[in-house]
Amino acid sequence: MTFVELLLILAFAAVVWFWFDSLKAREAGIDAARRACLREGVQFLDETVVGHGLRLARDERGHVVLRRAYAFEYSVSGDDRHGGSVVLEGREVVLVDVTAHRLARRAVVIDLH
């Protein structure tokens, strides 16, 4: 086996690892979004999340991890759609945001006054 062949095999293995790791992270994002929607009493629409960003970051222990951001949609009444987000560092969920409906409701109340 030549050095070039070894590099190609290692590159292929890295791509396969990244793909499987991304699938597991996405599943963690879906689970976090679903649980957050249940806590808020809103409907998790489409039962999925969409990747919104990927970068290297340091976790709270100082280790370099992949930070992935996902977006999803939820509904309060079934007739509306609001955007939420999930951020993972490695496989750990560090942020779930389902507050857009509160901000939209507050804006309507302020406009009425």
Rank of each mutant, 00 (worst) to 15 (best):
residue 7 L to I: 05
residue 45 L to C: 11
residue 75 S to H: 07
residue 113 H to N: 09
residue 70 Y to K: 02
residue 22 S to M: 06
residue 103 L to K: 09
residue 14 A to M: 05
residue 5 E to V: 04
residue 95 L to Y: 02
residue 110 I to K: 09
residue 10 L to H: 06
residue 101 H to D: 15
residue 65 V to M: 12
residue 105 R to Q: 12
residue 48 T to W: 01
residue 94 V to G: 07
residue 1 M to Q: 04
residue 79 D to N: 12
residue 16 V to E: 06
residue 73 E to K: 13
residue 21 D to C: 05
residue 88 L to V: 01
residue 16 V to T: 09
residue 61 R to D: 15
residue 113 H to F: 10
residue 112 L to Y: 00
residue 91 R to P: 00
residue 3 F to M: 11
residue 22 S to K: 05
residue 35 R to A: 15
residue 23 L to R: 14
residue 65 V to C: 12
residue 85 S to W: 07
residue 24 K to E: 13
residue 12 F to A: 15
residue 74 Y to L: 10
residue 1 M to N: 05
residue 42 V to W: 10
residue 41 G to T: 09
residue 15 V to D: 06
residue 34 R to N: 11
residue 7 L to K: 12
residue 6 L to W: 01
residue 7 L to G: 03
residue 38 L to T: 12
residue 41 G to E: 09
residue 89 E to K: 10
residue 84 G to K: 04
residue 91 R to E: 14
residue 105 R to L: 10
residue 17 W to H: 14
residue 21 D to T: 10
residue 10 L to R: 11
residue 1 M to T: 05
residue 16 V to N: 03
residue 112 L to G: 02
residue 108 V to T: 06
residue 57 A to I: 04
residue 107 A to F: 00
residue 93 V to Y: 12
residue 47 E to P: 00
residue 89 E to V: 03
residue 75 S to G: 11
residue 73 E to Q: 15
residue 68 R to Y: 07
residue 67 R to N: 05
residue 111 D to W: 02
residue 97 D to P: 02
residue 9 I to T: 08
residue 47 E to Q: 14
residue 101 H to E: 06
residue 113 H to D: 08
residue 83 G to T: 12
residue 44 F to D: 03
residue 53 G to Q: 10
residue 47 E to H: 14
residue 76 V to T: 13
residue 15 V to E: 07
residue 79 D to V: 00
residue 23 L to Y: 02
residue 82 H to G: 02
residue 109 V to I: 11
residue 56 L to N: 06
residue 15 V to S: 06
residue 40 E to P: 00
residue 37 C to F: 08
residue 33 A to C: 09
residue 49 V to Q: 08
residue 28 A to W: 01
residue 34 R to Y: 11
residue 29 G to W: 10
residue 82 H to V: 07
residue 85 S to E: 14
residue 36 A to R: 15
residue 84 G to V: 06
residue 5 E to F: 01
residue 17 W to P: 01
residue 19 W to T: 13
residue 7 L to N: 10
residue 96 V to Y: 04
residue 73 E to G: 11
residue 92 E to C: 06
residue 64 V to R: 12
residue 5 E to H: 04
residue 10 L to C: 06
residue 110 I to Y: 00
residue 18 F to C: 02
residue 83 G to E: 15
residue 5 E to M: 09
residue 74 Y to W: 11
residue 6 L to S: 07
residue 85 S to L: 03
residue 92 E to D: 15
residue 103 L to N: 05
residue 27 E to H: 04
residue 66 L to F: 12
residue 85 S to T: 13
residue 27 E to L: 07
residue 104 A to T: 08
residue 18 F to H: 08
residue 26 R to F: 02
